[in-house]
Structure formats: C-alpha cells, structure tokens
Simulated scan of single mutants.
Amino acid sequence: MRTLIVLSHPDPNSLTHAVAARIADAAHKADPAHEVEIADISAEGFDPRWRAADVAAFRKEAAPPADVLAEQARIDRAGTLVLVFPIYWWAMPGQLKGWIDRVFTNGWAYDERADGKVEKLLGRLKVRLVSIGAADEDLYRRRDYAAAMRTQIDVGIFDYCGAPLLSSDRLLPGEGTFPETALERAGEIGREIAGGERAAAE
C-alpha cells in the first residue's frame, strides 16, 4: 500500500506544505504499514517546460526524457496519487500543470490510436485532489469557478486518462476557523486513504 503526494509551492512554511504533511502523517498513523512519499516538485526543481524531447515522446518517436520516466516510475509504485496545490487564477500552479503536461504522456497515461480512438491507461491509479484557496465556496459557485475547475482538471485530465477520482476537496475559508479547518480535513483525507487502501488489500 503506497500513496504518492505531489505538491507545488515554493514556500516550505506554506499551508500547502502543512496540508500535505498532515495527510501523510494521518495516513501513516491510521495504518503504520501504509507507505507515503511526498514529492515536492518545487524543491526538487522539476522543469515544467514542454520541449522538443517531450514533443518527440508525444509523437512516439522517442522515449520520454529521463526526468519524466523517473516521475512515471514514482507514480507506478503508488496505488493512490494525491495532488495538493494552491489555487492560482482558478486553476493549479503552472509548475504542477507542467508536471502533468510532461508526465502524463501519450503511451503511458493514455494512448492515441491510429484509428482516432483514445485508450485510457490509468485505471489502476486512484486520485485525490486537494486544492487550497482564499475565497469562500459561495464565490466559486456564483462565478462558476467550481464547475470550470471540475471540467478542466477532474474531467479534462483524470477522466481522459481513466484514473478514478475518489475525491476533489477545496479547502477554503468559511464556517469554522481557517486554516485549522483545512488541516482537520487534511487529517480526514489521510485516514480515508489508509482505510481505503487497507480495505482494497483485504
């Protein structure tokens, strides 16, 4: 049982880091056998830029670059992928989007066939999204930001690849004391991950 938590925030003292750490800690406490890896792609210096080598990999003219293969291998070792990120302009940070652009490649995450059909290849991977914002839920509903994010991320990325999306949490100010409420929910998510993985293994 293994979970990979990927986060993108340059400040190690950020709420994003605190939420990721709380998820990992809660999962491990709920099931000490559960392995959790945190991938801080900002600290690791992952390059999100799409380059000629990425184009060649997309066209299946060459293998993906080494850093992409390393990220794919890290995901392949996990049963659950958790993305933890701050909401920037009603979406994920550019570095995390670039990580998805480069890592979720044609031939690994999905397969574009010659007949025009797309085969979804990530049915084995369970996904949880944990985004952190400054506006309350009412604003997301009134401006349709919530629907836009679901279309872009939940459906546009993970449904396209066939990865089951188990939950998509927005941790926002509202009722209760923020950010304490965000950290409380992070703990719940960690326990849910450990409980779900344990049940699947039994």
Rank of each mutant, 00 (worst) to 15 (best):
E112A: 15
A194S: 12
Q152S: 14
E37T: 15
I41V: 10
A57R: 01
T105I: 13
D115G: 03
R59C: 11
P65D: 10
A200S: 14
G79F: 03
W90F: 15
K126H: 13
P86N: 09
E112L: 15
L139D: 12
Q95P: 06
P12N: 06
A66T: 12
D54E: 09
R77G: 14
R191A: 15
E180G: 05
A147W: 07
P32Y: 03
K126S: 14
A53W: 02
A52L: 13
E192I: 00
E192S: 13
T177Q: 11
K126T: 10
M149L: 10
A186M: 00
A24R: 10
V82R: 05
D138Q: 14
P65W: 08
A39T: 06
V82T: 06
A27K: 04
L96G: 03
C161M: 15
E192A: 12
G123D: 00
E202W: 04
D101R: 05
E192R: 10
Q72I: 04
L183T: 02
A114Y: 05
G187Q: 01
T80Q: 13
W90T: 12
E175Y: 00
A52F: 10
G187D: 00
A21F: 03
V103G: 03
R141F: 10
K97F: 01
D76W: 00
A182W: 09
M149W: 07
L15A: 07
S42I: 09
R51Q: 15
A66P: 13
R150I: 02
D136M: 06
V68W: 01
P93T: 06
E202R: 13
S8W: 03
R22L: 06
G133H: 03
I189V: 14
V19M: 08
A53K: 10
P32Q: 07
S8E: 10
A78R: 07
D31T: 02
Y88C: 09
L172R: 06
L166M: 13
A39K: 02
G162V: 05
Y88L: 13
K60M: 14
A26T: 01
A26D: 06
E180Y: 00
G196P: 10
D169I: 04
G156S: 08
G79T: 13
G190Q: 01
L83R: 00
I87M: 15
E202D: 12
L96P: 01
A148L: 12
A73R: 11
A201L: 15
T177H: 07
D11Y: 01
I153M: 11
M149S: 11
G196Y: 05
E175I: 00
F178I: 08
P93Q: 11
W108E: 03
Q152A: 15
I189E: 01
E37P: 00
Q95F: 04
L81A: 06
R113L: 13
L81I: 03
